[in-house]
Structure formats: structure tokens, C-alpha cells
């Protein structure tokens, strides 16, 4: 492969729709449920399946509105995955919903029935990461991105706020071909964008520009990353903060550009550091020279546990304070 020629000015200008408001919080699963009703209104090909978690994934909103296009499959995820593949092979656009751990857990069924067929299934995995809190490891999706990313042709998406989720679902319902996995949070996330937001598949979104550090985050930890950047200013470092809603296909141009214009780069994700965003970024940098020092913040090859989301983010290094601590340790080492 040819080595990409990247210059500083390839970093895209700041978008006018960045509008951060920590007071306005919505869980991305709630945004999804709402969006699903709205796309279902206009597109008759949209069908929805759930496996006894519609109350939690919020697909129940679609079920109430369009009972004929909703299939309650019971606690039987493999059967749901195969059924969705059959519906997609027959021209429908199925959204199949459960907790991320339970859908991604049926990896081999997804691998053949959905991925290898390259069908238009939208696999929805809610309850991403240790951010779910008290239920503990068995209900946490912590390896789902790694699994889904390994499948050729599978898009891997994770929105970071309400409006981004809505626009993503509109895009997937009307303008996208091929299978995708969408990762959503149980917990409410602060607003990052206003109504002007435009979803661009495969593109990173710059929230703030700085000189020293590039913070590349996805999903529920984008806002903590943004807060960390503010704290780092007090220490004399400025940061570029980037939201990666498309983990695959990754915005390689942007990653390379950031890696060449900053001295340090940190990836931040509520997911194992093996195979998720951190790995995806490492894979891009592995083929380039003279790039920023990269460090991956995320779950460090360890199982999650029960606790409040706040206590878990503290213990596992994803709170704003712990992110700052990690970064300063790296910078000063």
C-alpha cells in the first residue's frame, strides 16, 4: 500500500453543529427507540426484531406503533439473527435488537447468516461497556466491537449523543447497503451536537482543536474525553478532541493527520483495548512513520464487575479524572 501523504491542513475545519451541553442528557438507546419510530413511518421495509429486551433496547416504541412489523422472538438470539438474515435476503431492512453482549455473543451465527451474506441487517447492541453498572460483567458488551470489526464488510458504529444517534439511524434506514453493528449506551449522555448535525458515514468529528494531544474517543466516553481536554489546559497542554462514530470503516485520513500533527495520541473507549477503537487506530499507525506516541485508554484485558457506573468509571480508568491522570502519567514519563 502507498504511504499516505498527510499534511496538517487536511484536518477538517470545526463543524458549526458542535454544541456541547452537559445539562441535556439522553441515553443513545432512548434516542434509537425514538428514531426507529420516525424512520418506520416513512420506510415500509423497516422491520424490527427483539429478544425479550424491547423494554430495555427501546424497540418497544416501534412495537407499539407498528405491531405488524415487529417480531418478538423471545429469549432466543440465534434464531432472531437467522430470521433477520432471511428477512433481509427478502428485501427488508431488519433492525435486530438485544444487549450487545448477547447479539455479539452469537458471533458465528452473525458471521455466516448476516456478514457472509452481506445483507442489510442492522444489528443493535445496547448496554455497551461497564457504564451499565450494577448488573455486572455478564450483561456488559465489552468485546462486541472487536468481534464485529473482524468481519469483512461489517460496519461498526457507535453514536455519542442523542442527535447523532437519530441521524445515524436515518442514514442506515435509507442510504446504506450492507450489514452494520450499532453500539448504544444504557446510561444518559450529554448533548454534543445541535439540530444542524449531519451524519457522515466513516468520518470522524472534531469537537475541539488543539496542538499537543489528540484525544480520539467513541460513544459514552466522548464527553469525558472532552472534559479531560479542558482539565489538561490547566496543565498547559491543548488537545484536539475527536468523536469516532464509525469505528469501521475508520477515518484513516483523519487519524493519520492527527497522528502527524500532534505529539501524543490517546484512544478512549468503554470496551476492551484489544480489538476496538484503540486497536483500529494502532492498525492505521502501524503502516506509517514518525507519528504521535499512542496510548490506549479502555478496559485493560480484565472482566468488568458490578458497581455504580461512576464507581466503575473511577476504578477502570474512564472517569474524567482518571483519563487526565493516565494522560499526564504518559506525558511525564
Amino acid at each position: 500500500m502507498e504511504k499516505a501523504q498527510v499534511s496538517k491542513n487536511e484536518t477538517k475545519p470545526l463543524k458549526n453543529y458542535v454544541d456541547i451541553n452537559p445539562q441535556k442528557k439522553v441515553a443513545t438507546r432512548a434516542a434509537f427507540g425514538k428514531a426507529l419510530v420516525s424512520v418506520g413511518e416513512n420506510n415500509q421495509n423497516i422491520v424490527v426484531l427483539d429478544a425479550d429486551l424491547s423494554v430495555s433496547t427501546k424497540s418497544s416504541l416501534f412495537a407499539e406503533k407498528f405491531p405488524d412489523r415487529f417480531f418478538e422472538m423471545g429469549i432466543a438470539e440465534s434464531n432472531m439473527i437467522g430470521t433477520a438474515a432471511g428477512l433481509a435476503l427478502s428485501g427488508k431492512i431488519p433492525y435486530l435488537c438485544s444487549f450487545g453482549c448477547f447479539v455479539a455473543g452469537r458471533f458465528e451465527t452473525i458471521r455466516i447468516s448476516i456478514a457472509y451474506n452481506q445483507v442489510n441487517c442492522r444489528i443493535i447492541g445496547t448496554h455497551a461497556g461497564i457504564g451499565i453498572g450494577e448488573d455486572g460483567y455478564t450483561q456488559m458488551a465489552l468485546e462486541d466491537m472487536a468481534l464485529m470489526r473482524s468481519l469483512p464488510g461489517m460496519g461498526v458504529l457507535q453514536p455519542a449523543d442523542d442527535i447523532e444517534t437519530q441521524r445515524m439511524i436515518e442514514f442506515l434506514s435509507n442510504h446504506h447497503q450492507g450489514p452494520v453493528y450499532v453500539r448504544l449506551t444504557r446510561q444518559a449522555l450529554p448533548q454534543l451536537f445541535n439540530q444542524q448535525y449531519v451524519f457522515e458515514y466513516g468520518k470522524g468529528v472534531i469537537l475541539e482543536e488543539g496542538k499537543d494531544i489528540a484525544l480520539v474517543a467513541t460513544g459514552g466516553v466522548v464527553h469525558p474525553a472532552y472534559e479531560a481536554a479542558q482539565k489538561l489546559k490547566e496543565k498547559g497542554y491543548t488537545s484536539s478532541v475527536v468523536n469516532i462514530h464509525t469505528i469501521k470503516p475508520l477515518d484513516e485520513t483523519l487519524i493519520q493527520s492527527l497522528a502527524h500533527s500532534h505529539q501524543w495520541m490517546f484512544t478512549i473507549e468503554d470496551h476492551t483495548i484489544m480489538g476496538g477503537l484503540g486497536s483500529a487506530v494502532s492498525e492505521v499507525l502501524a503502516g506509517t512513520q514518525n507519528h504521535a506516541v499512542l496510548s490506549r485508554i479502555g478496559i485493560q484485558d480484565i472482566y468488568g464487575e458490578s458497581g455504580t457506573p461512576e464507581a466503575l468509571y473511577e476504578k477502570y480508568g474512564l472517569s474524567t479524572a482518571k483519563i487526565v491522570e493516565h494522560i499526564l502519567r504518559q506525558l511525564e514519563s
Binding site: 455486572g136 458490578s306 458497581g307
Partner: peptide, 14 residues
């Protein structure tokens, strides 16, 4: 200590 951080009594059996 059920479901509290660092407890052996996880939300689901461990």
C-alpha cells in the same frame, strides 16, 4: 454488599 463495587456478590453469579 450485593452489586456494590469490589463485592463478591455480583449482580449475576461469578
Amino acid at each position: 454488599t450485593l452489586r456494590k463495587i469490589n463485592s463478591r456478590l455480583q449482580g449475576h453469579p461469578d
